[in-house]
Amino acid sequence: MSIENRLSQLGVTLPDAPAPAANYVPYVQSGDLVFVSGQISNDENGLILGKLGATMDVAEGAAAARRCAINLLAQVKAACGGDLDRLERVIKLTGFVNSTADFTDQPKVINGASDFLVEALGDAGRHSRSAVSAAALPLGVAVEIEGIFQIR
């Protein structure tokens, strides 16, 4: 089954790949690897703002991280010339969580992205990962995630 069909079964339609917000490119391809710049938490309603441990709980943060993963896949699709089936596997995610100094559940928040990628891609979605706290993120978003992907 194609990746796009699997996403459709999950009720997910990939947005157009978001344009960069500053002086950088959204992704760089080197050989069969695609390095995707950090994707911030946003959806069809706009930015997902908040600070874990203050204004958001883990479930809300995980939902924001899931949206970051959807945006990552949109960038990979763009890198693949629109053919997401060229995606071989997710190599690594680095997740940044806008959180208070005493919040320690960053891994549970980033699980929102990891769980989604495994659900959508099966074993090809399993990846290495870091989940770290940030005192603040661009525009006040809750989560930002960057990724490395292998393509054909």
Rank of each mutant, 00 (worst) to 15 (best):
V76S: 02
V76L: 07
K77D: 12
A78Y: 10
A78D: 15
A79R: 07
A79I: 08
C80Q: 12
C80F: 11
C80R: 12
C80K: 08
C80A: 15
C80G: 09
G82R: 12
G82S: 11
G82E: 14
G82V: 07
D83F: 12
D83K: 15
D83T: 12
D83S: 14
D83R: 14
D83V: 08
D85S: 12
D85H: 06
R86I: 02
R86H: 14
L87Q: 06
L87C: 10
E88V: 13
V90F: 12
I91E: 15
I91N: 14
I91K: 12
K92A: 12
K92F: 11
K92P: 04
L93I: 09
L93R: 08
L93N: 01
T94Y: 05
T94E: 11
T94I: 12
T94V: 13
G95W: 06
G95D: 08
G95L: 07
G95H: 09
V97K: 02
V97W: 00
V97F: 01
V97P: 00
V97R: 00
N98H: 05
N98V: 00
S99A: 15
T100R: 06
T100F: 06
T100G: 04
A101R: 14
A101G: 04
A101Q: 13
D102F: 02
T104I: 09
T104V: 11
D105K: 06
Q106C: 14
P107K: 00
P107I: 00
K108L: 06
K108H: 02
V109P: 00
I110Y: 00
N111V: 00
N111R: 09
N111A: 14
G112R: 03
G112D: 04
G112H: 01
A113H: 02
A113Q: 01
S114R: 13
S114V: 11
S114P: 00
D115E: 09
D115V: 10
F116N: 03
F116S: 00
F116T: 02
L117C: 01
L117Q: 01
L117A: 01
L117D: 01
L117R: 02
V118P: 02
V118E: 13
V118G: 01
V118Y: 08
E119M: 09
E119L: 07
A120R: 04
A120C: 08
A120D: 04
L121F: 14
L121D: 02
L121I: 04
G122D: 13
A124W: 03
A124V: 03
A124M: 09
A124R: 13
G125Y: 08
G125L: 05
G125E: 05
R126H: 03
H127C: 05
H127E: 06
H127Q: 13
S128Y: 07
R129H: 13
R129V: 07
R129A: 14
S130L: 09
S130Q: 10
A131I: 04
A131Y: 05
A131H: 10
V132D: 15
V132Y: 11
V132T: 15
V132R: 09
V132G: 08
V132A: 11
S133F: 02
A134R: 08
A134H: 04
A134Y: 03
A135H: 14
A135D: 15
A136W: 14
A136Q: 15
L137C: 11
